[in-house]
Amino acid sequence: MAVREVLEELGEVRGVEACALVGEDGFVIEGMQRENAPEVDFLGGAATSAMASARALADHLQRGAVEEVMVEYPEGPILLVPLEVGESSYMLVTLLDSVQSLGRVRFQLKRVVPRLREVLV
């Protein structure tokens, strides 16, 4: 199974508008989006900065590793999930249609994230 297939499976979950696998350098490795969804190709750098800020905050507060970052907007939240695979760092970025989709999408992420790690090894 390839990264694209895993992302497409996540994209089939009701409430997911777009998702992307982003490398630690901020470049989008692979992404998918529904029709009329925001472009994912240009959000890697901003998402990487948001994750770096969350990690700095976690370090300062001594809260442990960041497991997920959610940024909520009127048009729907964005979830950032860090993925450590061996020596490499990635991030799964998921754009949702509304806050009401959070539970369903988070539940699916519990299945998808381990599969992404397997594919990335």
Rank of each mutant, 00 (worst) to 15 (best):
A2M: 15
A2I: 14
R4F: 10
R4P: 01
E5T: 15
E8F: 09
E8W: 01
L10R: 08
L10K: 02
G11T: 10
E12Y: 00
E12G: 15
V13E: 05
R14C: 08
R14V: 12
G15Q: 07
G15E: 08
V16L: 07
E17T: 03
E17L: 14
A18F: 00
A18T: 11
C19G: 09
L21D: 01
G23Q: 04
E24L: 07
D25V: 09
D25T: 09
D25F: 00
F27V: 14
V28E: 10
V28M: 12
I29G: 02
Q33W: 02
R34G: 13
R34T: 06
E35L: 11
E35I: 11
N36H: 08
N36C: 09
N36E: 15
N36P: 02
E39L: 10
F42E: 11
G44Q: 10
A46L: 15
A46S: 14
A46K: 11
A47R: 07
A47T: 14
A47P: 02
A47M: 11
T48S: 12
A50S: 11
M51W: 03
M51E: 05
A54C: 08
A54E: 04
L57K: 09
L61A: 15
L61F: 13
L61T: 15
G64K: 00
A65H: 06
V66E: 05
V66L: 09
E67S: 15
E68A: 09
E68M: 14
M70A: 10
M70Q: 10
V71L: 14
E72R: 06
E72F: 00
E72N: 09
P77H: 03
I78T: 15
L79V: 12
V81H: 00
V81W: 00
P82L: 05
L83S: 03
V85I: 10
V85K: 05
G86N: 13
E87D: 15
E87P: 05
S89F: 03
S89M: 09
L92D: 05
L92F: 08
L92I: 08
T94M: 07
L96K: 04
L96A: 07
D97K: 00
S98N: 13
S98M: 12
V99S: 00
Q100Y: 05
V105I: 13
V105N: 03
V105E: 02
R106I: 08
K110A: 13
K110D: 13
R111M: 12
R111G: 08
R111Y: 02
V112Q: 07
V112N: 02
P114I: 10
P114V: 09
P114S: 06
R115K: 15
L116P: 00
E118I: 11
V119M: 04
V121S: 13
